[in-house]
Amino acid sequence: MNRIDHLFDRKKERVLSIYFTAGFPDLEDTLPIMQAIEDAGADIIEVGVPYSDPIADGPTIQESNMIALNNGMSLKKLFDQLKDMRKKVSLPVVLMGYLNPIIQYGMEEFCKKCQELGIDGLIVPDLPMQQYIDEYKEMFDRYGLRNTFLISPQTSEKRIKEIDDYSNGFIYMVSAHAITGAKSGISNEQIAYFERVKSMELKNPRLIGFGISDAETFSTASQYSNGAIIGSAFIKIIKNSKDLKNDIKSYIQSVIK
């Protein structure tokens, strides 16, 4: 069974997904960071594939992408690093990356490799729904990969329903009109949006991301969804860390306490 499906079968609340950029802060940190996230008690690991032009990301993730690329990270290198991943990591693993590096690698080859390594799902922020349905859905399904779409406060109800129909795994609710890491705290307007989507009773679990950074924002987001995603705040923790394992542990435990 796909590990994402399995997770949401047994856990419906306070699911914590942690995003980080592969090859950051150092090239060979990828797998140790994944292990540390698992050991600290998070539920999903999102591995970011760095890209030169990440248009949905704010300064923190942009910078981590640049550093990772300068360190020599690439999709090929990442797949090398993740070769024996499933001997060490049992959590669901999602790759998050922009479309261009994936199509240069070759979409089918990419999906095949993901299946081989035990990757459970994909988030491709600039892959539009229609293109996914027309060109790639059959392939993702064939290789057992769950595909996560984003929705935002601007997404119409009609489109949210369509996205729900064509998604599997989970839906990524962008918390505000924002790129990653743009805002902190949760406003009343955002809560109205969370409630509106909650009342739609979608078939897919929902995780809220963008602007989640601590125990308070995680708990608030979790009241209106199945849990939340932390990215930029986590990148800041590992950026200056001298002891990745312990810093990751104390940060994640402070969020889920």
């Binding site: 690329l69 999709l75 590096p101 199509i103 240069q104």
Partner: peptide, 19 residues
């Protein structure tokens, strides 16, 4: 061929798809 700024077009890029 690659994708930049929202459209598929010809693009100067590395083998890994970095612009």
């Amino acid at each position: 061929p690659g994708i930049l700024h929202g459209s598929k077009t010809l693009l100067m890029q590395t083998e890994d798809g970095q612009v």
